[in-house]
Design a protein around this nucleic acid. Structure first.
Lengths: 191, 191
DNA sequence: GCTTTATCGTTTGGCCTCAAATGATTACCT
DNA sequence: AGGTAATCATTTGAGGCCAAACGATAAAGC
């Protein structure tokens, strides 16, 4: 019979043991590792509390959120802001449109582009949903003081900013002399 | 023509404006929002730098990592530790097994259970991969001092710990009188 | 004007993702 | 011992996810 699940503290101790011999950036490892643990835990909690009754996935909610914050916007920009690819956005916005939460309209000056916006139903949903969402954000961070939350947000913003500024350059440098095989998945050239 | 992508600072300013009228937990919102922005940015960077040449997805790497840290373990525990469902792990471990990185062996006392472990090739890969992975963890968090990294890891651990301890209880309370529709996706009962 | 060249959003293919159903096995109960 | 309940990994179905291919449109070059 399996024992209780391992706590995050036990996990960190096991990492220390396993890597005892290697000289590594332990602080960075702890920070980055916990970013992902926390992101997954928080996402899971929000999906299974406030989003589930509305049958919204995380990504759908984020897209609604972006449109709520920024107002009508091009798909290009919405995908960027939501942190998903434009291909993914095509599917998600189609789903939201079919549920009457998002409207799609052609760009007045460029027929290639498409503008997305919330419908009145979408606006109404966000006005109802966001306070509940924020209440859970407050729940998960309740043990931290407001100052600690801001400190946390600051440190994370520094990391995001660094990748915004130097990430691409760094990747180019790292992969400069790599001979990358084509991706396993993805569309194939026609024969 | 679309302008440059909006920075994380601009995004936070827009949120402030949009929510000017509402009374909300801004500190919690900033913290939680940035957790996800940072997680996505870091994951994207690592997938497209150290993982891509080895044709490993993020999830595959995390599973290898868990087996490397904990050694041979039951699928049950690996899924928990990797932060994925056991159904997902079935697929991922099958892929890793087909690439000769992971071995699957029956539990000596319970034929329902399965033990996973790294093959020698898997061990070798992790010994080569992990230093490179850690170097990128150091790269993304370079602007932060070691003390700030530990502070960051601490705050995130507090959030994960809170959800480990009180998350399920909270969700039960929130959904107590909700009449949840069955999930849209998922296996259907046989007719 | 006519031809590149660039840039839209969409489509495609192969994974990942979850929760519930399912079959195999084990534990419990009488 | 024999039946029921619990628990394991797997399967299933619908959707999310990305990058590259693609068709439609627009801009630039000539």
């Amino acid at each position: 019979m399996p024992g209780p699940r391992r706590s995050i503290t036990e996990t960190e101790q096991a990492i220390q043991q396993r890597l005892g011999g290697l000289t590594l950036q332990r602080e960075a490892m702890a920070a980055v590792g916990n970013i992902h643990r926390a992101a997954a835990a928080v996402r899971n909690h929000l999906e299974n509390s406030v989003l589930r009754p509305h049958e919204l996935t995380w990504t759908s909610f984020v897209v609604l959120w972006v449109l709520w914050i920024w107002g009508e916007a091009e798909t290009w920009s919405v995908a960027e802001e939501a942190g998903i690819s434009k291909g993914t956005l095509t599917g998600v916005s189609r789903t939201l449109e079919s549920r009457g939460l998002v409207a799609r309209s052609p760009h007045p000056e460029d027929r290639r582009r498409v503008l997305l916006s919330l419908t009145p139903a979408g606006e109404k949903l966000m006005e109802e949903l966001f306070p509940a969402f924020n209440a859970e954000e407050a729940f998960v961070s309740a043990p931290l003081s407001p100052e600690q939350c801001l400190q946390l947000a600051d440190s994370l913003r520094v990391i995001v900013g660094r990748l915004e500024e130097r990430g691409e350059q760094r990747r180019r440098k790292l992969l400069a002399d790599e001979d990358l095989a084509p991706r396993r998945s993805g569309r194939r050239p026609r024969p």
